[in-house]
């Protein structure tokens, strides 16, 4: 009963707000192909001069957790220090045949599917190891998916602060406003990881809300 009352009053969140960390462990979560690794690569390339992972239109390209340590981003409000943890995309289904449609042979498709399922499990397990999270979504896709709801619900349940990143605003059919409407209780920052648009606003939001 006490836990329920404590949760309702959001005491844990208030306590955490007073304990600011100098360097945060920032997790990138979200559905498959939302652009998490593209964003991680862009940040890493801009501030460390190197990329961390490959990106592909084939789903589940990132099947293992990728860490980028000691990233220091200079902003107008000072330096933002963080370790970035790029997670495999969360999915509720993995069908190896969907990979064959992208030209993979059966053996490679099966191996990819097996690794993808492990990656999803690994990403969920890591929810307990991050200080803050960017939930990366595709602005051109429907935001009302159970994956988005489950990811955000789990972060809320663990009192982990988050920012919703409405990625791919460079696409013609992008509708970041639909993401804002779907998750009005959270800060939503529309960006394009591919072009770098609005990344300065994202850094500012991280500094204001997640550190």
């Amino acid at each position: 009963m006490f836990d329920g009352l404590k949760k309702f009053l959001k005491l844990d969140r208030l306590i955490k707000k007073f304990k600011k960390k100098k360097q945060i462990q920032l997790g990138f979560y979200g559905p498959v192909n939302a652009g998490k690794t593209t964003l991680a690569n862009k940040i890493s390339l801009d501030w460390l001069g190197k990329e961390v992972g490959t990106v592909s239109e084939i789903p589940h390209e990132t099947r293992h957790i990728q860490k980028i340590e000691n990233v220091v981003v200079k902003t107008n409000n000072g330096a933002l220090k963080m370790n970035i943890v790029d997670m495999p995309g969360i999915a509720t289904q993995v069908d190896f045949k969907s990979f064959e449609e992208f030209g993979l042979n059966e053996e490679d498709a099966r191996a990819r599917a097996k690794e993808a399922t492990k990656g999803v499990i690994e990403a969920i397990k890591w929810l307990d190891n991050v200080d803050a999270v960017l939930v990366v979504m595709d602005s051109a896709a429907d935001p009302y998916t159970q994956v988005n709801i489950t990811v955000i619900g789990n972060l809320e349940a663990r009192d982990i602060p988050l920012i919703v990143v409405a990625n791919k605003i460079d696409l013609e059919n992008a509708a970041p406003a639909s993401i804002e409407n779907a998750f009005p209780q959270h800060v939503v920052v529309p960006i394009s990881a591919a072009t770098g648009e609005n990344l300065d606003k994202l850094y500012q939001a991280i500094q204001e809300h997640l550190t």
Binding site: A91, T92, I121, I124, Q146, G153, N154, A157
Partner: peptide, 13 residues
């Protein structure tokens, strides 16, 4: 609950 949903996804995988 959200945690049960995450467990459901894990078990599914």
């Amino acid at each position: 609950s959200p945690k049960e949903e995450a467990e459901l996804i894990e078990t599914t995988m």
